[in-house]
Amino acid sequence: MSEHVNITIDDREIKVRPGEKLLWAALENDIYIPHLCAIKEESRPNASCRLCFVEIDGIDYPVAACTRQVEEGMVVKTRSTKVDRLVKTAFELLLSDHNLKCSECPANRNCALQRIAKERGLKLKHNRFKPIGREFELDDSPAEFAFDRSRCVLCGQCIWADRVGAEAWIFGFANRGIDRVVTTFNNLPLAELKCNECTLCVDACPVGALYYKREQKV
């Protein structure tokens, strides 16, 4: 097997590690593709956020870049009418279940949703889909940080950090469909579980759902 694979993304020829997923190959070469749920070390990605679509020459539908391995000679476009439409819809759906108050949010100016909006010219506003307005109880039981599920994008980054990094096995997904949440066993407050407040999950959260209390705005 050769040491690298040659692919072209947006007319740029790059050399990447064989077996690498397209998303990471692009990101490591400073080519931006929106993403929330992808985890580099995860061999079987969840591919749940539906934001990382790209077009690959020879395939007539957009493909999730986090699931597709690079292949020699692959020609990729990060933008197309189809891709933009899919990403816009996925983004708007996410926002419809998001407590969108950036000025009050600890992640303001350091937020993956804001970055996606900026990169793709999307509006951080409730527009086509009216906000669902799910109500959640704030879990501020840990000393240093808090969990506000109204800002959670269900990316699963905290679950990975909690399991692979901290080996605490506290976080997981629960419920189905529109009631889906990231939570703990029986929805218990974190302080009642074996959470030792290593804060790896807080650092992993790409938005303002898990945040340090010292960064709290209101």
Binding site: R163, W169, I170, F171, G172, F173, A174, N175, R176, T183, T184, F185, N186
Partner: peptide
């Protein structure tokens, strides 16, 4: 009951939160 979910988690060696996730999914 919660106690049953905890004991099943222990017996099968999976996180309790995964049992909860499964039980709330269906």
């Amino acid at each position: 009951p919660s106690l049953a979910m905890e004991k099943i988690a222990e017996g099968v060696n999976v996180p309790t939160v995964d049992i909860y996730g499964l039980a709330t999914f269906y």
